[in-house]
Structure formats: C-alpha cells, structure tokens
C-alpha cells in the first residue's frame, strides 16, 4: 500500500514537471532543458516571499507563483525570442546554458545549503494516515491534488479555451496560424509562462515537502524521460509516461537497489525509444523532403 502511495506521489511530481516540457515543446518545438532549474528558481522565490509575507502563507505562495510565471515570460522575451529561426540544437543549447547560469546564480544568492520554506511559512507538514496502513505527508497529498487539477484544467483549456485553441494552432502550423492573425510571440511567451508556472507549483510543493537545495534541478532532469516516453507533444503521453517511469523507479528501488534511482528513468527512456522512436503518444514528425 505504501508502495502504491509512493508511486502516486512520484507520478504526480513527474507528471507536473513533464507537462512543462510538453507545453513548450508542443507550441514552439523547443526542448527546454532549463525547466528543472527554472523550477528550482521558483522554489527559491517562494523562500523570498515566505520571509516577506511569512504570516500569510497564501499571499506568499500566490506572489511566488505570479513571479515564476513572469520569469517564464521574461525568459522567452529576452532570450528564446532571439533564438527563433536558429537551428533547433542552438535553441536547446541556449536553454542548457540558461540552466547552468541559473544553477550558479542560485548558489551565489541563496548558498548551497538546504533550506526549509515550510518553516518560514508556518505550515506544519503533518502526515495523513490512509486506509491500508500507508502514510502520506500533507504536501505530497497536495502534489497529487495539484497534478489532477492542473491536468484537467489544461485539457479543458487546450480543447475549449480561445487561447488554448490558438496555442494548438501555433504548435501545428506556425505559418498558417500567423497568417490567420494569431500573434505567435504572445502564444510562445504564454506557453513559457504557463510551463514555468506549473513547474513552479511542483517545485514549491517538493521544496515544502523535502526541503530545498541544488538537487531540485536533478529532479527536473529525471522528469524529462517521462515526457519523452509519453511522446514530447502529448499531454496525455506525459501523464502516462510519468506513471510508467515512476512505477519502474519505485519498484526497482524497493526490490533491487536504492542507488538505481538516478538511472531508472533513463533506462526506461532508452528501452521505449528503441521500440517507439516518437514515444507512446507522440506524433511522428514529418519526414525530410527533398
């Protein structure tokens, strides 16, 4: 039973992070390898707002979330916008470079030691007993709830919302979308903001649950196979991918070797990519034409 709970929590973590990768990739065909670092930055932002508005935890979290979304938009406006039209690899490497920059900068500003935003927010992260003898901490339960909420609203948004439809259009055929009067820059900036915002939710909850230090970025990197296993441009795929990767990881850690935690996601990734090169639900990308 505890295993099932662990799997659910890890799935929620991976799914929340993976959907950030998927959103940006689906809309702009850029793989954002700095997602983990952006998530870490958001968690550090929470630390700042927590010491500012310590007594009002809701205000602190809302401010931090708003700031994170803003950071995402700014990253697009000031960095990634310059990379449109360049080689895809160059754009991806720019995000890698951004990730390195953020890693260094967060250490410089907040030092490398572990922080506990929960204490500053005056929240007690108590454990909830579940039927079957399993336990789940408050933040972990919130992670699962957030995941469900985020995914259902994203599905609704992309299917029904006016901006969601525009986003899908921009992702499918940027040229046609632009000709129909969709402002691509706004769409791309929105995708970056939204992706960072969702990453921030995951990052803050993880930080509140387990504490915050530089390993946060590694979690972001480990969630990336989940996005790829499901197919980089499918939200449903991200969810399924997260479930597969999390299940494999928890089971192998429990039954084989705890050290495996670092490699399992990537091993699953290779195994899946060999059989389904575009992931489980990903669309086959167009073949080259002569």
């Amino acid at each position: 039973m505890q295993l099932a709970v662990n799997i659910a929590v890890l799935t929620a973590i991976y799914a929340l992070i993976a959907c950030g990768y998927v959103l940006v990739y689906r809309v702009s065909r850029v793989l954002n390898l700095a997602h983990g670092e952006l998530m870490m930055l958001s968690a550090y932002l929470l630390l700042v707002t927590a010491s500012q508005f310590g007594s009002h935890w809701a205000v602190a979290i809302a401010t931090a979330l708003g700031l994170s979304g803003l950071v995402g938009v700014l990253v697009y406006l000031f960095l990634m916008r310059k990379m449109t039209g360049e080689m895809v690899l160059a754009a991806v490497l720019t995000t890698v470079a951004l990730g390195i920059l953020l890693r260094g900068a967060t250490v410089l500003i907040w030092s490398a030691q572990q922080h506990y935003p929960v204490q500053r927010l005056n929240i007690t992260n108590f454990a909830i007993a579940l039927p079957g003898g399993a336990r789940i901490s408050l933040c972990a339960a919130l992670l699962v709830a957030t995941m469900i909420l985020v995914y259902s609203s994203l599905f609704a948004f992309l299917r029904l919302g006016r901006w969601g439809v525009r986003m899908r259009a921009a992702g499918q055929r940027p040229l046609l979308a632009a000709q129909r009067g969709i402002n691509l820059h706004i769409i791309y900036a929105m995708a970056w903001g939204l992706s960072t915002l969702i990453g921030a939710m995951a990052g803050m909850l993880i930080a509140m649950d387990q504490g915050l230090d530089q390993t946060m970025a590694t979690i972001g990197l480990k969630a990336f196979p989940a996005a790829l296993v499901g197919g980089l441009d499918s939200l449903l795929g991200a969810l399924v991918g997260a479930l597969i990767v999390a299940t494999a990881e928890i089971l192998l850690i429990h039954y084989v070797d705890p050290l495996l935690s670092e490699v399992v996601p990537f091993a699953v990734l290779i195994a899946v990519l060999v059989v389904w090169p575009w992931g489980l639900f990903g669309t086959r990308e167009e073949l080259d034409r002569v």
Partner: peptide, 11 residues
C-alpha cells in the same frame, strides 16, 4: 558557482 554563472552567460 561563479564559474557556472559566468560559463552559462558566456555560452
């Protein structure tokens, strides 16, 4: 950390 920051920036 300084190295990381500067390296990312230069890249």
């Amino acid at each position: 950390a300084v190295n990381y920051t500067a390296f990312g920036l230069v890249m």
